[in-house]
Structure formats: C-alpha cells, structure tokens
Computed example of a mutant assay.
Amino acid sequence: MNFLAHLYLAGSNKEIIIGNFIADTIKGNKFDHFSKDIQFGIKMHRRIDTFTDSHPIFRQSKRRLDDKYRLYKGVIIDLIYDHFLAKNWSQYADTSLFDFSQEVYQLLEKNYAILPEKAQYLIPYMSKQNWLYKYKSLQGIGEVMHDMNIRTQGRSKMNEAIVDLKDNYAIFEKDFTCFFKEIENYSSTYLKNHDCKNNK
C-alpha cells in the first residue's frame, strides 16, 4: 500500500494517521519516544504491508507486470492501487478526496516538529504538488511514476508502467476492488482491537 491507502486505512485518530505516515522513515524499533497511538500507527502500517505483500491478489497483480520492473513491481502495484482508491474515493469515504488530502497535509504540517527528518523532507513536496489528489487521474499517476523513476536514476523503469496500467486497466481495477475489501476488513479489525484494549 502507498501513502493514500495507509492514510485512509488509519481511521480517524490523528496520531495513528501520523504513525502510519512516518512508518517507512523509521528503522527497526526505534520509535518508543513517540506517543502510544503513534507507535500503534507505525506497527499498523507494517502489519498492513505484511498482509498486502503476502496476499494472493496482490501477488497476482505483480505477475501482470512486465518482468523488466523486477524488484520494483510491488511499488508499482502500490501506486496503481492508490490510483484506483483515489479514482473511486466516493465509494469508500464520505468526505471528498480533495478535503481529505488537505486535512492530511495540515495535520502533518502542524506536527512537523516531531516527525523524522525523512518525513519532514517529503511534506513540502507532497503538499505543494498535492500527491494524494494527483493519484486520481491517469496523467497524475503517470507523473508520479515518472518522478519515481528519476529518483531511482532510471533503474526502476517505472515511467513505463503507465503503459502496463492502461493496457490492463480493467483487470487491475478488478484486482484492487477485490483486494481492498479484504484489507479494509483487516485494518478495521486491527483498529477495533486497539480501541478495546485502550478502553479496558
């Protein structure tokens, strides 16, 4: 799962949202200086990644990609799934994607001082270019893939993956729809268990 999915699946607790956002910028277990809910968000992010990477539908999606992408297949499918979440946003959330995106940027900027340096570095670009909303269109997701390829110095060939997406659009969307029902249920249960423990 990429940024949008993780932020959406984190629910409404602001500190859990922050934890989900910063998880990839933290190594190992060096996060006990954060609040309990931020720590939970970090752990939740990692559980979601484990669930996703081992899921047969996600693996099936990766097999649909050309072998030239090699180790970057998972990252590309993460982006493709975020595209379909953004495109079909109204089926999953009551608030608009634009409003959700702005609320996330504001939350991260408000808590900028406590975020890891790598996360701090991302926020200005993410907000200015409106990454979360940009995922919604083919042009937007194509631009993201292009930028990602530049960041990998051309090794990932991710700029070419927009062609794979267009050529297999309906199939990828079906994969996403089936998979996302399961990751929503998994995440919802994980959040409820956390709430139950805290309310004891």
Rank of each mutant, 00 (worst) to 15 (best):
Y81C: 01
F84Y: 09
D195T: 03
S137W: 03
E15F: 07
N185L: 09
S35R: 08
A23R: 06
K157L: 15
Q106H: 11
V75Y: 13
I48V: 11
Y135C: 06
M1L: 04
F58L: 01
D24G: 07
D195V: 01
N111K: 06
G19A: 09
I17M: 09
S12N: 14
I38G: 07
Y135W: 09
T95I: 12
F176Y: 07
N130E: 08
I48Q: 09
H55Y: 12
I17K: 15
K157Y: 15
S12A: 12
F84N: 00
C178P: 00
D147P: 00
E182G: 02
H146N: 13
H194F: 14
Y81M: 09
Y8K: 01
G19Q: 04
G11E: 04
M1K: 05
D66L: 10
H6R: 05
H33K: 12
I123E: 04
H83V: 05
D37I: 02
T25D: 09
Q129T: 10
V104I: 15
A10G: 11
V104K: 14
N199E: 15
S96E: 06
I77W: 09
E109V: 11
I150H: 13
H194W: 14
Y121H: 12
G28W: 00
R70E: 12
K134W: 02
F21N: 08
N111L: 10
M148Q: 02
N88D: 14
K134C: 08
E103N: 15
Y135N: 07
Y186G: 00
N198A: 13
L85G: 00
R64M: 15
N2Y: 12
M1H: 08
Y81R: 02
T95S: 14
L122A: 13
Y186W: 02
K157R: 11
N193S: 13
M145S: 07
K197I: 15
S187K: 01
Y169P: 00
W89Y: 10
K200M: 11
L97H: 03
H83G: 01
H6M: 04
H194M: 11
S127A: 15
R46M: 10
Y112K: 12
L122W: 10
I141E: 06
L4Y: 03
A119Y: 02
M158W: 06
D167R: 15
K36P: 00
M44I: 00
M44E: 03
N130L: 02
M145E: 00
K30F: 13
C196T: 14
N149P: 00
K157S: 09
F172R: 05
N199T: 14
T95C: 10
G74W: 10
Q106K: 15
R59F: 04
M145K: 04
Y112A: 02
L132E: 10
V104P: 01
S90T: 13
T152P: 14
N185G: 14
I76K: 13
E143K: 13
D147F: 13
D164F: 07
I18T: 08
S188H: 10
A10Y: 02
F21L: 08
A170W: 04
